[in-house]
Structure formats: structure tokens, C-alpha cells
């Protein structure tokens, strides 16, 4: 395996980011003490992070370098349905290069482009979403020179229990384990989880262990991979006090944590 510190994410060696977004009915509840819903908060965070990624890819001459390829996978917009989260002209596409993302935004809000809108409709087919992410990452790794690229990063944003996880969550765990076994020459695929809740307080950021009795909280924590060196460095730069074996898991983070988490999950 090559040293990831020698890897620069570039248009010749891009990185795949996969965002799994819970679009189930419960996302219609209020986000913490805010006046807007969890679905709106997540959508804003995703639109912001796409913009941030764009900032990292634009060259001095105004050209966007394809350093990142991004997938948005929505689950729960229809019963048991997992589909591409891209809308407008990007609708139906699974993976879009950052160059095309900025060519085809859905519109503009506050002088900034947006790409997705909030949805909160049906149940929570999270296992199916991870299965899609697995196929996607596997195809991506085996495409062109992607074995010599930064391993894909999957960021799952959810507020609740999967409705298709099987007995003892075994179906979901199985998909996650299969994803963790996928790797490029620079390491294996990372899985990060943002667990948002209507509950106020009890914030948990990048823990190395969870003691809470909430079985789904524990499941999402166990599903998450440890933060790599780069992620730890960025998290520390953003003021988070994290231990070396911290995992990519956030419970009940606020809006800033959400965007910071997405930033930490996006390699520099």
C-alpha cells in the first residue's frame, strides 16, 4: 500500500465522495431548536459542502479541476426506494464530476448555487442505500486509474432507524462490512455517520467509544470507520478535541458541526 501522505487529490487522481441522505418522513421534524426541519438542515449542509468542494477545485484561471467526483444517494423519498439525489439537469446521474456540478446547478440562493432540495417522505431503506454505495464504490475503484486514487468516502446522514436492516441489523452490518473491505492502493473506503436527532443536548462528536444504551446510536458508531490522520488534523484545526482513535461519527451535532463534519470528511 502507498503512503497516503504522498497523494495529492488532483484531476489525474480524483477522489469519490458519496453522500447518503435520509429522505424519510421523520426528517420533516424540527432540527434541534431551529425553526426549520432536519431535511432542510441536511440539504443546506450538502449544498454548502458542494460549494466548499468547488472552492478547492477552482484554479487561478477560473477553470474547475475535476479533483472530486460526487454521488448523492437519497433514500426514503418513496417507499423502499433508493435513488440518485441529483436534480435538474443532473437528475438520474449517480456520480458527477465537480466540473459538471458547477455547470448544472439547480438554481441560486443568496448568490450561491444550490443542487438539491429537501425531501421527507417515506420509510428508511438505509441498507439498500449502503448496498448501492457499495456497488458504486466498487465500480469506481475498478474504473481507469482509480486504484491509484484516494479511497472513496461515504458520509451517511440520518435521523433514525433503518427499516430494512434485518434481524439484529445483520443485513445492514453485512453491507457495511463489505464496503469496508473495498480499497484502493492508498487504503480502504471510509464510512462516516452523522446521526441527527430532535433531542436537544447530548452532543457527541468524533467519539472513540459510546456508552449510551441507544442501540441504533451504537450501530451507527460501530459502522463508522476511524478518522484518518488528515481528518484528525482538519478536525483539530477546526477546534475539535479528538483522540487518536476517534471514529467518524457525530450524534446530535449542530449546524456548524454538520458542515465541519462534511469538511473533515472531504480530503484537502
Amino acid at each position: 500500500m502507498h503512503d497516503i501522505r504522498n497523494l495529492t487529490i488532483s484531476s489525474t487522481n480524483p477522489c469519490l465522495l458519496v453522500y447518503l441522505i435520509d429522505q424519510s418522513g421523520s426528517m420533516n421534524e424540527k432540527f434541534g431548536n431551529a425553526s426549520h426541519t432536519k431535511a432542510v438542515e441536511v440539504t443546506n449542509a450538502i449544498n454548502d459542502i458542494l460549494y466548499e468542494v468547488g472552492l478547492r477545485c477552482i484554479g487561478s484561471g477560473g477553470e474547475l479541476k475535476n479533483r472530486f467526483e460526487i454521488a448523492i444517494i437519497g433514500y426514503g423519498k418513496q417507499e423502499n426506494v433508493v435513488q440518485s439525489g441529483w436534480e435538474g439537469q443532473l437528475s438520474g446521474k449517480w456520480v458527477v464530476s465537480i466540473k459538471n456540478i458547477f455547470e448544472f446547478p439547480l438554481g441560486q440562493e443568496n448568490d450561491k448555487p444550490i443542487w438539491i432540495k429537501p425531501y421527507s417522505v417515506s420509510n428508511t431503506p438505509m441498507t439498500k442505500a449502503f448496498e448501492n454505495a457499495k456497488r458504486l464504490c466498487n465500480d469506481w475503484i475498478n474504473w481507469g486509474n482509480h486504484r491509484d486514487c484516494h479511497p472513496p468516502i461515504i458520509i451517511n446522514i440520518t435521523d433514525g432507524e433503518a427499516t430494512d436492516a434485518g434481524s439484529n441489523f445483520n443485513a445492514l452490518k453485512s453491507q457495511v462490512e463489505q464496503i469496508k473491505s473495498l480499497r484502493t492502493n492508498y487504503g480502504s473506503v471510509s464510512i462516516l455517520n452523522i446521526h441527527i436527532s430532535t433531542r436537544a443536548g447530548d452532543k457527541l462528536l468524533f467519539p472513540s467509544e459510546v456508552n449510551n444504551g441507544d442501540k441504533f446510536e451504537r450501530l451507527l458508531f460501530e459502522m463508522s470507520t476511524p478518522l484518518d490522520e488528515n481528518m484528525i488534523r482538519i478536525a483539530q484545526q477546526k477546534g475539535y478535541d479528538i483522540r487518536h482513535n476517534a471514529k467518524g461519527y457525530v450524534f446530535n451535532g449542530n449546524a456548524t458541526d454538520l458542515i465541519n463534519f462534511l469538511n473533515i470528511g472531504t480530503p484537502q
Partner: peptide, 19 residues
């Protein structure tokens, strides 16, 4: 300059659903 080839996940094509 590298070739700009669009990555298409073949294993997801048949699962591509659209409203």
C-alpha cells in the same frame, strides 16, 4: 491533458429509477 471520461457505475444502471 488527461482524457475526460465520465464514470458510469454499470452495476447501478439497471437500478436507475426515475419519477
Amino acid at each position: 491533458k488527461e482524457k475526460e471520461e465520465e464514470f458510469i457505475p454499470t452495476s447501478l444502471l439497471q437500478k436507475n429509477q426515475r419519477n
